[in-house]
Computed example of a mutant assay.
Amino acid sequence: MKHVLLCLTLFIGVFSWSQKTAKISVEMRNPYPDQDKAYLIFNGKVGEKVKQKVVDSCDIKNGLFSFEVEVDELSEFIVNTGDEYFAVYMQKGDDITTKVNTKMFDETLSFTGTGAERNNMNMTVYLISERYSLLIQSAIANCYDHPEDTTNVFKAVNAYDSLFAAYIDDELQFYPELEAAWKNKVAQQKNASKYYLGSIEETAKLRALEKNSIGKEFKNFSGINLNGDRISLKDFYGKPIILDFWATWCGPCKAEFPGLRELEEKYGEKINIVSVGVWCKEDDWRKMAIKEEFKLNIYLTKEESEGLQSEYMLNSIPRYVMLDKTGKVININAVRPSLGLEDLIKKHYL
């Protein structure tokens, strides 16, 4: 009798534990050669703030691995294999099997077992969201060539956002437990659209400014050189001028330095290529300017650069400006050295 009671107790204990946990098993076809470790990341209960905590890890053997985690309410987890990752929503009692082909990861991801239905639907929502994003980006990319005509693209983007929101509202009738997660996805989509549309408006303004600035004298500015002397833009009149606005923390700026040095070596006798440090500390600018060995340097404080920001939309760097020998504008937004600045030099200066 004691043995019966002991077995019954053990059975109840194991059964109770299994009811408190969720399990996910993953089968990957064509795993990457270096794909040998998987991680389970807890993102938080649905509707709560994302926490991003690694709760388990395991070895991947022949594309197979699994996790079992204690969970109460429906929660979001991220399964990360290093090269790829996916979200899965699990609650106690779930036992999910996931199959995927790494050659087409998102498109082949599928779920079976207890808890699978909500995750298959969530994957469908994710793929539709990705498709809407691509449509929006495509519409916006086409608009960059003609930013003055933004009416149609604004209508298209707003239509895409409305369709996606309506689709989510419809599906929530069947998956109300995912309302917080999906509503957040709708909000993210709208914020992305707002960003892209704002980018188009800025591009339209900059294109108009580029056109209207041609032939006009560029606003004079002054700062200090490496000797600490005050100098101004007008000190470089007499030769054509290229201004390179950069900062010490700007990776893309520094990536263009080698190309700019080559242009200085080839055309420095005929053109004043002026390195203009902005939006950084003077000591940091001085160290980097000395290291890079540019011949002509100016440093502008935040206050000294504000007038250029407002007048020429100098809101991002690197930025290249081409002027003639009297300081009149040829191009206030020239391409980078890596994208063909030398071609513009040959066209306008040689």
Score class of each variant (00 low, 15 high):
N191T: 01
A208G: 08
G198W: 03
L206P: 04
T203W: 04
K183A: 15
N191S: 15
E179T: 06
K205Y: 08
A192F: 11
Y196G: 01
N184K: 05
L209F: 01
I200N: 03
E217H: 00
K205T: 07
K216Q: 13
A204I: 03
P176G: 10
K211W: 06
T203E: 09
A204R: 00
Q189D: 12
E179V: 04
G215I: 02
E217W: 05
Q189W: 14
K185E: 15
G215M: 07
S213H: 02
A192T: 07
V186C: 14
K211P: 06
Y196Q: 00
Y196R: 02
L206A: 09
L209Y: 05
A181Q: 11
K194D: 15
I200E: 04
L197F: 02
N191K: 07
S193D: 05
A204L: 05
N212M: 09
K216C: 08
A192N: 13
Y195K: 01
A204H: 01
Y195I: 00
E210V: 02
I214W: 08
E179M: 11
L206I: 09
R207C: 08
R207Q: 13
P176V: 06
T203Y: 06
Q188Y: 10
W182Y: 12
S193P: 05
S213G: 04
L197G: 03
W182V: 11
L178Y: 10
L178M: 14
Q188V: 13
L206H: 07
K190N: 15
K183C: 15
P176E: 15
S193K: 01
L206Q: 10
Y196N: 04
K185Y: 11
V186I: 12
T203S: 12
N212I: 11
K205W: 05
L178P: 08
L209H: 00
L197N: 01
A204W: 03
K183R: 08
K190W: 14
L209P: 01
K185G: 10
Q188H: 09
N212Q: 09
E210Q: 03
Q188S: 10
E210G: 00
